[in-house]
Write a protein that binds this DNA or RNA. Structure first.
Length: 155
DNA sequence: GCCAACGTTGGC
DNA sequence: GCCAACGTTGGC
């Protein structure tokens, strides 16, 4: 199976790329959107490459890359009573939500801002640029991944 | 099944 | 802080 490419959003105030570097590996928990869940459960595979994007940041930007080290498995925070992501409808026997594990690959030498992505004609098809697109796990093409990586002086 | 109300996301 | 767009909830 070939490598797929993704964009993962995170608010740096909640979990930044620095947090990921410090942790070494992260359980990508707390995704509570069905479309994103389906990607995590069914399509995000070990070895897939991730553009790590800071949303709700100033400026919003792609910060670096990461790699998937464990494919979809049930998000146990859904039945953790002290978790912010508790969802009583999800149980160990019938999990609703899924997560993957990721590791950082490298921060970009320079961040690639949303503005720069929007201004590049080659990236016009990205889901990120669609009006009202709030999906936190988005597929990107290999070409889009590599263009942004180059814009970040890191490929 | 419809749809209004509500909560969240996320750029600006 | 504002607010548009979206997803979810719940009454009917």
């Amino acid at each position: 199976m070939s490598t797929n490419y993704w964009l993962f959003k995170s608010e740096p105030g909640a979990y930044s790329y620095d947090n990921l570097v410090n942790d070494g590996v992260a359980e990508w928990d707390g995704v509570r959107n069905f479309q994103a869940r389906n990607f995590l459960r069914d399509e995000v595979k070990i070895g897939d490459k991730i553009l790590f994007y800071h949303s709700n940041a100033s400026p919003p930007a792609a910060i670096g890359t990461a790699v998937v080290v464990r494919s979809g498995y049930p998000d146990h925070t859904a039945w953790d009573p002290v978790s912010d992501h508790l969802d009583p409808k999800s149980t160990p026997k019938n999990p609703i939500w899924y997560m993957v594990d990721i590791e950082p690959e490298g921060q970009f030498a320079r961040f690639v801002t949303l503005r720069e992505i929007r201004d590049d004609d080659r990236l016009g098809a990205m889901m990120l640029l669609r009006k009202g697109s709030r999906l936190s796990i988005q597929p990107v093409t290999r070409e889009q991944f590599e263009i942004i990586c180059k814009m970040g002086d890191s490929c």
